[in-house]
Design a protein around this nucleic acid. Structure first.
Lengths: 349, 349
DNA sequence: TTGTATGCGTTATCAT
DNA sequence: ATGATAACGCATACAA
């Protein structure tokens, strides 16, 4: 075993060190340091470093001298100081209602990566599937943010009640009158698309399976409307089992009558559908031969199950780019938009 | 359709607004505002709000007056100003090498939630499975951070080269001499545990399956040593197929000879193992009857596949608490610790 | 072309 | 018991 190595295991923990007192207070490089080193004023340095120097006739060589020294010393501007001066902090807060949901953690990954590439930092505030109130977000209010982006549905509108100095985006369903810029999946269109597809597959009888919450009900209702308009026979089952995966599995294991199966099981979330697939596999009910299954969200594992899951993809890049566009344009007018979710046909249907 | 609703779809986007110019510059509540409202000095307000008032004989009623007005006005301290004054920003940076890997996104969720509960904000910097260099992390250096926590293995030690003013934690394998506090899974112990278990199951022949990278090789070597010490016959296969899931699936589909199967397929990551399970399911090779499978990490979906996956759990809460403990104690001495990963026995082995 | 002075919100060190 | 003042790092209006 390496001499500097030890264990962490519940309470007991023992550690051998190579460096008893590392120095972390090693002074950060500031404009002042650069100015002193060069024998010029701080304001000159500031102007060069913020790019305002070139426009007001500072000689090329002065600019270069400052820039190269700054680079050599590894200068980085202090965002806290910039933000205090009223400049954009180029920092956004991202709030996630249920980080355990792979759809959301996936979304956060895309969002953060895109923001990062545009020079924004991301402050993450995630929860594990629980109601969020305004106090939960007060840490966010302590930072000077350019925007707050909320991932998840919530019609209470309470969470961001106190966030007034910053524009708020919501991805998901909210109170239609909440003060923010909303983006939500176009479930009516999705339902139409799926309806057409099911009809083309000869489906007659549809079983809807959803979680017992208003946003799932909304999604299920859209499906029901579209399916009934195509003369399909629709039943609906709601359950409050959690996690979603267990909901789907339990339904497949216990609520399905093998002697009278519907043609398709339409689930309001991928995880429900994957749970159902697992349950059906356990029972030996062949998918899609004896029963088709669909989901919603196109999470990473949707393509990994056997059989792989037919579902709707949420176009994260489009939504993210729309938000960044708004931020760049400083266009924070309230309103809501729907985005189209293409049907991804795989093996399960 | 709701009148305020429209579409986002590729380039085209149309939006109806209820509020043409929302006011976001609504002034933030500062100590100054409270002081003026109460007709006292800013310093008094500051002392009350930072808790130093009680100790120096400020009357109870004054304290109460300030506190209640602060609360009524919704005052929150400005972290930027506090940080500028040299106070802890109670903000940490979290760097993730591969956010697409569900193990890491899971870890981030736990980490962030725990930090949040301790009053820390989390700045997330995640990447999609690529080498990270010091420039990638320079946005982090612009913030005043209490610590940087790096998730993922990397022996180059280059990523946090420039982060000198902040303690760095790494979860995963790094250069043994890098300047940080490292936590890594105890793979030797895990290998011993698995070896014992396999022997108890009557296993004779082991096939190791790993990704072609040094940290997987390290893990596989630990397994090989432990297995060979128990007189098991061990073969090893490395592949550079990505993503991991496809690596496992491709191996199961194409490299396994159905007429001469090993007893167990030991994979260095859950996703590889799940891919293998899927491939075996496609080929109709029964698990664990004809071939056992194990993974590493215990990602969420490990328990969801059919059959569910036997694997090692990484004790995230322990590691996270150890880090937070260090932060609270301001104990940033370099060194590395291993943490024990219990074997989670499920259906696949 | 460059330097001086001021202020952002907060805390800390003085006074009073 | 409380108020004035300086300082953190930066940007900028104003001087020179």
């Amino acid at each position: 075993m390496h001499p500097r190595t030890s264990w962490v295991d519940r309470a007991s923990s023992l550690l051998l060190f190579s460096n008893p007192k590392p120095e972390f207070q090693e002074m950060r490089i500031t404009q002042k340091a650069i100015a002193e080193e060069l024998g010029v004023s701080i304001s000159l340095v500031s102007r060069v470093l913020s790019g305002t120097a070139a426009g007001i006739g500072v000689p090329e060589e002065t600019i270069h001298a400052v820039q190269s020294l700054a680079k050599r010393l590894g200068y980085v501007p202090n965002r806290a100081a910039q933000a205090l001066k009223g400049k954009s902090s180029r920092t956004v807060g991202v709030v996630v209602y249920d980080f355990k949901d792979p759809f959301f953690s996936d979304f956060v990954g895309h969002l953060q990566e895109r923001l990062h590439s545009q020079g924004y930092s991301t402050i993450l505030v995630g929860f594990s599937d629980r109601q969020i109130d305004n106090r939960d977000l007060s840490p966010l209010r302590q930072h000077l943010l350019d925007a707050v982006i909320i991932l998840g549905s919530d019609r209470s509108g309470d969470a961001h009640r106190d966030i007034r100095s910053t524009p708020v985006f919501r991805i998901g369903h909210g109170d239609p009158d909440e003060s923010c810029i909303g983006y939500s999946p176009d479930e009516d269109q999705a339902a139409e698309d799926l309806g057409d597809y099911l009809v083309s597959k000869g489906v007659r009888e549809v079983q809807l399976l959803r979680y017992a919450m208003w946003n799932h009900e909304k999604r299920a209702s859209a499906m029901r409307r579209a399916f009934e308009a195509r003369s399909l026979q629709v039943s609906e089952h709601a359950s409050s089992v959690k996690p979603y995966f267990e909901l789907g599995r339990a339904y497949a294991l216990r609520s399905l009558d093998e002697n009278h199966l519907p043609d398709v099981l339409v689930c309001t979330a991928d995880q429900i559908a994957l749970g159902a697939l697992r349950g059906l596999l356990e029972r030996g009910i062949e998918v899609p031969k004896r029963l088709k299954v669909t989901g919603f969200d196109d999470i990473q594992f949707a393509r990994c199950f056997f059989p792989s899951l037919t579902t709707f993809s949420q176009p994260m890049p489009n939504v993210i780019d729309a938000i960044i566009q708004r931020m760049n344009d400083q266009d924070f007018r309230h309103g809501s938009q729907k985005f189209r979710c293409p049907l991804i046909v795989r093996e399960s249907c």
